[in-house]
Design a protein around this nucleic acid. Sequence first.
DNA 1: TAATCTACCAAGCAAGCGCTTGGTTTGAAA
DNA 2: TTTCAAACCAAGCGCTTGCTTGGTAGATTA
Lengths: 208, 208
Amino acid sequence: MWNLDEQQAQRVMLSLVERGELTDPQSARGKLLQCAAHLFRHKGYERTTVRDLAGAVGIQSGSIFHHFKSKDEILRAVMEETILYNTALMRDALNHAQGARERVLALIRCELQSIMGGTGEAMGVLVYEWRSLSDEGRGYILKLRDVYEQMWLTELAAAKTEGLLQGDPFVLRRFLTGALSWTTTWFKQEGSMSLDELAQSALLLVIK
Amino acid sequence: MWNLDEQQAQRVMLSLVERGELTDPQSARGKLLQCAAHLFRHKGYERTTVRDLAGAVGIQSGSIFHHFKSKDEILRAVMEETILYNTALMRDALNHAQGARERVLALIRCELQSIMGGTGEAMGVLVYEWRSLSDEGRGYILKLRDVYEQMWLTELAAAKTEGLLQGDPFVLRRFLTGALSWTTTWFKQEGSMSLDELAQSALLLVIK
DNA sequence: TAATCTACCAAGCAAGCGCTTGGTTTGAAA
DNA sequence: TTTCAAACCAAGCGCTTGCTTGGTAGATTA
């Protein structure tokens, strides 16, 4: 039923839920967050009304504000939980990868999984709904993103010292951020190319 | 005052304005389009109200509808004119570039200029405000984009037959689309890296 | 000189928005 | 059996939205 990646993802999620860092996806709040990610991604934050969201989970629009103080807080929660979860996934993946090349490939696979897999919609929100977030929320999310990005830079720098890549790791990471996040607009997992092949192609962008 | 690229850009624009394919940027409609691009890019289409736009050009909100039938038409016009202009710029640049490697580099420089230069805000709108466009508008803009993308694929395929790049030109173009468009979020022209150096780095992503 | 046209203003309408309020259901604890 | 908090509903408030309307000043044409 599940492949190894999905078992791993499930395990990481459970441990985060237990630690209270992530909302249980089966709870009312969790379902709201999932639906919100879906709607925000496909219609955009502004075009999504609280009535849309309420209708999607089958409650009245006012009831949403029992779970969240404001619409903005919903967006922030979607982003926060997504970045926390995916940072944990990356950390876990690095624990099972050895050698600079393999570790960079692990990060690429991880980020592609984040974008293509179950959290894909939430990742899209994180990348493309930036402007809709309030100033306070943005500052907070930026801090979380810095942790995430630091993991990337560490591994790319290690690959650089091993002579695996030419060019500035900072610039390469940024090129890669754009290239990978953009895959959401064109790559179909049902197509002729597998996600693993996609990851290999992406690795060739930075490693010769 | 102006460098060669800007003279070139000016010439291409004038010829398009004369042919009636582009709105004269000095006309009332042209100024509205410029302001709209700016506002749509920085606040997002939905967050930008017709009152914002009217205030930015110094007229009343109702007066906008003398120039455009609807707010949606403004978005479509921004996108249409941007893609027409940049397609013309690319065609012009290719006329002055010889050899597969140089031609691909010319396209990269062109796209980066589009993103970083005078039409940068409008390009950002084209890339990131997709969802806000009505269905009819989207179909029309997609056709224009196909012409633009075909030029890319032609040049990348030529580079492939010369053995300059490994991997599928389609996939590489898509990686490149993401990588280049993302530069708008981090690259500063005042910084230590020039736009030409950035283009060279980007070329190294696809050509070994 | 009269007629026409372009570009705009001033005012406001109908609809939709995020959010609030006061009250009701429900399920588990005491 | 009572208590109580969490989850939700029904109604609607105050505000903003895209857009319409009827009219006017000034340039252009006939």
